[in-house]
Simulated scan of single mutants.
Amino acid sequence: MNRHAMTYLDNRLAPLARGLARLTLPLALGLGLGMSLAACQQQGQQAERPPLEGASIGGPFTLEDKNGKTVTWDQFKGKWRIVYFGYTFCPDACPLDVQAMMRGFNQFAGERPDLAAKVQPIFISIDPERDTPKVVGEWTAAFGPRLLGLTGTPEQVKQAADAFAAYYKRGDDTPGGYLMDHSRVAYLMDPDGKPIAMLLPVDHGPPAPAVAAELAKWVK
């Protein structure tokens, strides 16, 4: 993820960080003392809060699947969702990210098929000029039947990307065609469509096992 993409994502998450920073030291100390006793009483069983809880990520969109059928964000209500924005002509980043994402998902599915059945992995193209429904469908099929590929008009793609704080920009033309500059994040969204955690990028261990571990941690 380049500097521009990181800045864009940081700006979207900044309100959450500022809200946490508004706790004054006395209040924080008081809360800490009060909560320490409760934590002892609960013997460490208190659930961890989702890292993206309250972040302004996610929202309605209208796109198309490989058959040209209209797909909306609301259709996934009740399902956990993994959302990644990329493009099929990407020479390296997207194939590596999506491979790690789906290998991690498949590992999770092998361990907990009942919970994996509640999860829908989604790939959304940020290159509608070249990524037709057919092209996206063929590309996502290479990563397994569970990955749903979506595309749309430039306006529809922009609406979806803006809702999910996904940065993208067309790069310079090259002899092999233009590239797209874009953020590289896989969001885990809960059944109500609220952001829970980032499955990618990971900062520890091999990507696929890390993705599987995050899914096991949050999907219930």
Rank of each mutant, 00 (worst) to 15 (best):
G58C: 01
V202W: 01
G144D: 02
K220H: 15
M180Q: 12
A160H: 01
M189K: 03
N2W: 04
C40L: 15
K79T: 04
A197Y: 04
D10V: 02
A163Q: 09
T72W: 01
D92S: 13
H4V: 05
L29H: 01
L188M: 01
G205E: 08
L16C: 03
N2V: 06
D192K: 12
V83T: 06
Q99S: 13
D127R: 09
F61G: 00
V185L: 14
W73E: 09
G44I: 13
K118C: 09
L199T: 03
I57A: 02
R12K: 15
P15A: 08
E53Y: 10
Q46E: 07
M1N: 14
T153K: 15
D172Y: 10
E155V: 06
V71L: 00
C40T: 15
Q107K: 06
D173S: 10
V219L: 15
Q43W: 04
I122H: 02
P175H: 07
G193E: 02
D65F: 00
G30H: 11
P201M: 08
H204Q: 15
G152Q: 03
G171W: 00
P113R: 09
F61M: 00
F85K: 00
L148I: 07
D190P: 13
P175K: 09
G59R: 06
A161M: 04
T72L: 03
F164A: 01
W218Y: 15
G176P: 01
M102A: 02
T174G: 07
G78C: 06
P191D: 09
R18Q: 12
A100F: 01
D173R: 13
L179S: 08
W73Y: 14
R12S: 11
A142E: 14
C40F: 13
M189V: 06
V119N: 07
Y8N: 08
A116I: 09
P154Q: 09
P121H: 09
K194Q: 07
C94V: 08
D74H: 05
D114R: 05
I82A: 07
L33K: 03
A39H: 12
R81K: 10
V98C: 02
N11V: 04
F76Y: 15
T7Y: 02
G104C: 05
A116V: 10
D131H: 11
A109I: 04
V202Q: 09
A116G: 13
M1L: 11
V135W: 05
D181R: 05
G177V: 11
M180V: 15
R130Q: 08
N67V: 00
L199S: 03
F143T: 07
E214P: 03
L37F: 14
K66I: 00
F123D: 08
V71M: 00
V83D: 01
V202R: 07
R22F: 05
G59E: 01
K66V: 01
L33M: 04
F143I: 09
G171P: 00
A38N: 11
Q99W: 04
L31E: 07
A210Q: 13
A213D: 14
K118A: 14
E129P: 12
T153I: 10
H204R: 15
R3V: 09
A55N: 02
V185S: 04
T174F: 06
D190V: 13
A116P: 11
K79V: 02
M6L: 12
L188S: 03
V219K: 14
L25I: 13
D97A: 13
D131R: 13
A39E: 13
H182G: 06
L27I: 14
C90D: 06
N11C: 08
